[in-house]
Simulated assay, not measured.
Amino acid sequence: MTAPPPADARPDDPTVAVGVAPPPSERAYRRRITTEIWIVLGLSLGKSGLYAVVNIIDRLTAGPPLGDQTTTLNPSRSPRPWLDLTYQLLQVGFALVPVALALYLLSANGRSAVRRIGLDFVRPWRDLAVGVGLAAAIGIPGLGLYAVARSLGLAVEVQASALNAAWWTIPVLLLAALQNALLEEVIVVGYLMERLRELRWSVPVILVTSALVRGSYHLYQGWGAFVGNAIMGLVFAEYYRRRRRVMPLVMAHTIMDTVVFVGYSLIPAAWIAAIGLN
């Protein structure tokens, strides 16, 4: 049964006739979107950013210089292979839940979220070509920046993978690379930029915000990683602003992480040591 209209309602008010609430005000809409952003970031990369800030403070005050410390990506989670595989797959699966949430929220008006942010396969070869170009343009200078940061003691030593050797090791590393790409590009670029645009933030502020969020959750690797990823964030955010497509960014990110996670094992040990990778 429809609730009765308020006592001070006008008889000619159309919302009284149909028994529906009036549309929210602009202020209420902006407040809701702002709250939504904080929730999505709090469940995903915003949370990672806060942990990374605490982690870098911990590292800087722990005693050993930053350059003498290490961090491990993709650690093994159990000495038993089948349990390790289970943990790795669960990690990938649950990490993608915020991606699903962001896409769901962006599709609230009935429009396809994957089309809205360009996460589709309507032009796969062009997206792949752009992705390869971006991966080369960002990844190669990024390795150089990391090497410089390591030589200056501004970055920790990164162990790209500590998974036990098994038949599933490389497939899991490929899944981890894809998971990182989807999580970061969908949320920090597609979702966040769309929502900030709805809040009518200026373009420069949107670009810088996206870049700083990306840099923040890499702080645990040191200042070099923060700067490098913030620069990457600016480039990716500007590409999205111009093209409104996330798929090339996902491809570029997947390629870069694949090279780090898998490809580095094919590089001579002397080269790896020279750039500070273990």
Rank of each mutant, 00 (worst) to 15 (best):
I272S: 12
A225L: 07
P204C: 11
L207Y: 10
L96V: 10
S78D: 15
V235C: 05
A135N: 07
A28Y: 10
S265G: 08
V259G: 05
I275Y: 10
L106S: 02
G139W: 04
Q69N: 00
L173T: 02
I140F: 11
L83P: 05
H218C: 02
A165D: 12
S210G: 01
I231K: 07
G144W: 04
A177C: 07
V20C: 11
Y240A: 07
P81W: 04
A211H: 01
K47S: 14
L73K: 11
Y220M: 09
V250T: 02
A270G: 08
G42H: 05
V148F: 03
V99R: 03
G228S: 02
Y146W: 01
A136H: 03
G19Q: 01
R214G: 14
V250H: 00
V172A: 14
A252Q: 03
L119A: 05
N229C: 06
A17I: 11
W271A: 13
S76T: 13
T2S: 12
G190I: 11
A162I: 07
V130P: 07
L103A: 03
V260H: 03
L106P: 00
W168N: 05
R244G: 01
I57V: 15
A62G: 00
A230Y: 10
V208N: 07
L101W: 11
R80M: 11
Y240L: 06
G131Q: 06
L73I: 12
G263F: 00
R214A: 12
L154I: 03
A160T: 14
V259D: 01
V260K: 00
Y240C: 08
G46A: 06
S216T: 12
T15S: 11
I206P: 05
Q179A: 08
V99T: 08
V122A: 15
W168G: 11
R200D: 14
L154G: 11
L66F: 03
G190K: 01
P79Y: 05
A177N: 03
R31S: 15
I33C: 04
V53L: 10
A7F: 09
A270V: 13
A102C: 14
I37C: 05
L128T: 13
W201E: 03
L152M: 15
A176F: 12
P79F: 13
D84E: 12
F226A: 09
P171N: 09
E157D: 07
R30Y: 12
M1S: 09
G263I: 00
K47R: 15
F121K: 10
I33A: 13
G222K: 02
A237T: 08
I37F: 11
G110L: 09
L85H: 09
L85S: 11
L175R: 08
I117F: 07
A135V: 00
P79C: 06
A28E: 15
R59W: 03
R123D: 12
L234N: 04
